[in-house]
């Protein structure tokens, strides 16, 4: 019996608790199949265009390179922020469901924006309305991203909330987290489908209004209250 067949049988059988089922996955955090001298692939078209003709490009021709990630795409609809959003939304590794959910939200966003577009009375108002859903999601994440991070530091049996600078890697993570959390905690969540509430929140955030922006402002206010402890942070 092959390993893949055995895995399918074991994962489907009821005798194995969920913890064991997770152990059977060979996720990249546990082991990579690539030897250490293999280099990361460059699959973004813009990056390849910039590199071509340079000395680095000539070197990379002869070097062993890993295969591209399965999310790599040259499509014009591809957006790294949307990709990140689906990953953060995803639970239990069920990607197909959450890809579908993301497509549904994008369709809902399109519907909301088009209705606004056709309801607009003048042409100047119409030109201001953005109808591309990927662009709307990117705008929402950009608007919701915080400028600082709060770190709780213990100094002499007192817990301080210390404002710290935030890296460019972490900002979209926090923004997406807030959007998802608030979309889940909607009061009408049981009656409304999740993708509808998510789309509503994303459209609101892209226009710089709504609960996510309020939460960001509250976060910044807490930072401002604790500005005296800015020197207590652990990092330099």
């Amino acid at each position: 019996m092959s390993v893949g067949r055995a895995y399918v049988l074991l994962s489907q059988s009821r005798r194995w608790p969920s913890g064991y089922r997770r152990l059977l996955h060979l996720s990249p955090s546990i082991a990579t199949m690539w030897p250490p001298h293999f280099e990361d692939p460059i699959w973004q078209q813009n990056a390849l265009k910039e590199l071509s003709g340079s000395q680095e490009f000539e070197r990379l021709k002869t070097v062993p390179i890993k295969s591209a990630p399965f999310t790599a795409s040259a499509s014009i609809f591809y957006s790294p922020i949307v990709e990140r959003f689906t990953r953060q939304l995803m639970r239990k590794g069920k990607r197909e469901i959450y890809d579908r959910l993301m497509l549904d939200t994008m369709g809902e966003i399109k519907r909301i924006q088009l209705s606004r577009y056709y309801d607009a009375k003048s042409d100047t108002a119409r030109t201001e309305i953005e109808t591309c859903p990927t662009r709307i999601i990117e705008m929402a994440v950009e608007n919701a991203s915080p400028l600082m991070l709060i770190q709780s530091v213990r100094m002499g049996s007192v817990q301080y909330q210390v404002p710290t600078p935030i890296t460019a890697e972490r900002t979209p993570f926090e923004a997406i987290r807030w959007i998802i959390e608030i979309a889940y905690d909607r009061p009408n969540n049981r009656k409304l489908s999740f993708y509808k509430s998510l789309a509503d929140i994303i459209v609101q955030t892209s226009m710089n209004v709504g609960p996510v922006i309020a939460r960001k402002h509250e976060h910044h206010r807490i930072c401002d209250q604790n500005r005296a402890y800015a020197n207590y942070r652990r990092q330099p």
């Binding site: 600078p165 500005r227 800015a230 020197n231 942070r233 330099p236």
Partner: peptide, 9 residues
């Protein structure tokens, strides 16, 4: 003094 505290304040 930590980095970029004045700018943050």
């Amino acid at each position: 003094q930590k980095v970029c505290v004045n700018e943050m304040v």
